[in-house]
């Protein structure tokens, strides 16, 4: 009876309902997080592990491959944010306006890539960007009268391939975020702006952009994380974790290489911790700059 009382009391009910989340959060997030931090100070061996202090971190400082991976991830994050916010926003505004016919078709076309597996699309892109003369891009180059290019062996051409794959996949998803943001903007605002004689550009600048800010911040935050933690796209594009001169190696790729391919979990954990810290710092700066960390005004 006491148990029933406990179960049905209004005080405990919220905790009971929140329990599944809290439990899974603790087991699958907090515990691994702490465990990874602990492991980053260890040398994890097959039979036994030993404490090595800051050895793993000291090694990271000297590790040129890790520096390359950091630079690659950072560049990718920067470029993907630069592409994946303005363009989806533009498409969303177009979809929301009367300028576009057959919106359903366009939306579906933009969204469908997100439904395909990266494994499949990555393989297709790898074949498209093959350095061999039958690769699609090289066929186009030949048609244009240009010489064939070793796309995935040169830093900047491979960056193009990666960003193309990324945009192809995520434009539709980000567009949907912006569309839902646009739907929540009160139409009366536009009407009153019309009455005041505002142009399309002015309406976009003074109504759409400010009111879309929460959505933009959300998209920016997840794009930063997604950019920094990109792995699968590069893994598929080079058919593995090894790219010529490490031009496609990302931080997570390096973590995978160390942790899984070389079974050096301690070092991999140090890589992971560094990635987490960088991700947190960048996002905190970003959130502080656009004012999201301030207390909500009453």
């Amino acid at each position: 009876m006491k148990f029933r009382k406990f179960l049905y009391s209004e005080k405990t009910a919220p905790y009971v309902f929140a329990l599944p989340f809290i439990l899974s959060f603790c087991i699958f997030w907090i515990y691994p997080l702490i465990s990874a931090i602990v492991m980053s100070f260890q040398d994890i061996g097959a039979i036994s592990s030993e404490w090595v202090g800051f050895h793993n971190y000291a090694k990271l400082l000297k590790d040129n491959v890790f520096h390359t991976a950091m630079l690659n991830s950072f560049e990718y994050m920067l470029f993907s944010c630069m592409l994946l916010i303005p363009f989806p926003m533009l498409f969303a505004v177009l979809m929301d306006s009367n300028l576009v016919k057959a919106k359903g078709v366009w939306k579906a076309m933009l969204y469908v890539p997100a439904l395909t597996s990266v494994v499949i699309s990555g393989t297709l892109f790898r074949l498209m960007f093959s350095e061999y003369k039958t690769g699609q891009m090289n066929v186009i180059m030949t048609m244009l009268g240009l010489s064939t290019v070793k796309w995935l062996k040169i830093k900047w051409t491979s960056e193009i391939a990666l960003l193309l794959l990324c945009c192809w996949r995520w434009t539709g998803v980000n567009m949907l975020y912006f569309l839902s943001g646009l739907k929540s903007i009160d139409k009366e605002l536009y009407e009153s702006a019309d009455m005041d004689g505002a142009s399309f550009g002015q309406k976009f600048r003074f109504i759409t952009l400010p009111l879309l800010k929460p959505t933009t911040i959300y998209v920016l935050t997840i794009s930063i994380y997604a950019g920094l933690s990109m792995f699968l796209e590069s893994y598929m594009l080079w058919a593995g974790n090894s790219s010529p001169n490490n031009i496609g190696l990302t931080i997570v790729g390096y973590l995978y290489k160390r942790g899984i391919e070389k079974n050096d979990m301690g070092y991999a954990c140090a890589v992971g911790v560094v990635l987490m810290v960088i991700g947190l710092i960048i996002n905190f700066i970003q959130l502080a700059l656009n004012g999201s960390l301030k207390k909500e005004e009453e």
Binding site: V118, V119, Y235, M236, W238, A239, G240
Partner: peptide, 10 residues
Amino acid sequence: TADDSAAAAS
């Protein structure tokens, strides 16, 4: 040859 381990990533 890494094309096999590609499956690993999925």
